[in-house]
């Protein structure tokens, strides 16, 4: 619904004096317009200063060499496409990209895990609210605290994980100290943390929105439990699945900093450095290369945009509304 936009009145009517009624309307319109902008103003100002300006600045910075320092010796220098060229030749960047992609294997795991939990807590049992609360606890807990907890759990000597494995006669790996296992460890923690969280609640809401009559019809056709799930539940959950997937992929590409920072500091041997971590590392920790970090951030943005559009296209074809 587009509204008829009111042009701000102008004084282009030459020098002819305004009639009193006209003058009144003129002032009314002006104050109307001003008050509208007064409503929008504070937020718009903030968004301009803390979103629009940074976007433009970041784009420009991506073409410069700068440490962010105000000292003259570190003056800002034009770099052209150097940063991007260096980035594509940077092994660390590609390693971070690989790490990010591997860590994103957690997304389908989480998706099925959350769906499973949602199916479980969707049953008609009296104490179901208790379970739901229990499963939700890690989500509502401080993420830093949870990551610290899991860092302790993964301790090869005294941690709970390896002790439980030892109970099953399995010699557990040095989870966070071994480049081959660190990513697996982070994925497990990530899935555990969100198993009973938002995604589960979204699935639960979607499950409760499925009409009982569809299941009755399936029963009349003699469908097994599996068939009921595969032919009724799963297709009807597809909008939720698409939503969860898109949000998961967007979050997956730009996530992982906090977890890696708290649990592994990006190591061992850079095996848990995600792109996000790589960018902050370049900007703030090791080198203070603001231009280089900005360039990497824009490459990340481009990837997210492209993947999201692809997913959207795919979703349009395969999602049943």
């Amino acid at each position: 619904m587009t509204t008829t936009t009111q042009q701000p009145p102008t004084l282009a009517t030459g020098r002819s004096p305004l009639q009193p009624a006209e003058r009144q309307r003129f002032w009314l319109q002006w104050t109307d317009l001003l008050s509208s902008w007064a409503f929008l103003g504070p937020n718009l100002f903030g968004v301009l200063l803390f979103v629009v300006f940074p976007v433009v600045a970041s784009f420009l910075l991506a073409f410069t060499h700068w440490s962010g320092s105000r000292a003259e010796a570190d003056a800002i220098r034009w770099a052209g496409l150097d940063n991007f060229r260096d980035l594509f030749a940077d092994r660390d960047f590609w390693h971070a990209m690989y790490n990010t992609l591997v860590l994103m294997l957690g997304i389908p795991l989480r998706l099925f895990g959350c769906l499973g939990v949602a199916l479980l807590v969707n049953q008609r049992i009296r104490e179901v609210v208790l379970y739901r609360t229990l499963f939700f606890l890690p989500t509502i807990s401080s993420a830093t605290a949870i990551f610290i907890l899991w860092q302790a759990l993964y301790n090869p000597d005294v941690g709970l994980v390896n002790r439980l494995l030892a109970g099953l006669m399995i010699q557990g790996p040095n989870w966070l100290g071994d480049p081959n296992w660190a990513k697996t460890a982070l994925i497990i923690t990530g899935v555990w943390r969100t198993l009973g969280g938002m995604t589960m609640l979204l699935y639960l809401a979607a499950l409760q929105g499925i009409s009982e009559s569809l299941y009755e019809a399936a029963d009349i056709d003699g469908a097994t439990a599996w068939k009921r799930f595969w032919h009724v539940t799963w297709p009807l959950l597809s909008p939720t699945t698409l939503f969860v997937l898109i949000m998961g992929v967007i979050g997956g590409f730009q996530g992982g900093f906090q977890q890696a920072y708290v649990m592994t500091k990006g190591g061992p041997a850079g095996s848990t450095t995600t792109i996000d971590y790589f960018i902050y590392n370049e900007a703030f920790f090791t080198s203070q290369r603001m231009g280089y970090a900005s360039a990497a951030a824009w490459v990340l943005f481009a990837i997210i945009l492209a993947v999201t559009l692809l997913q959207w296209r795919y979703g349009q074809k395969h999602v049943h509304y």
């Binding site: 803390f50 910075l61 960018i279 951030a297």
Partner: peptide, 11 residues
Amino acid sequence: MIPGAVLIVPT
């Protein structure tokens, strides 16, 4: 849609 990584350096 803009990722935080783009905004954080200039901010």
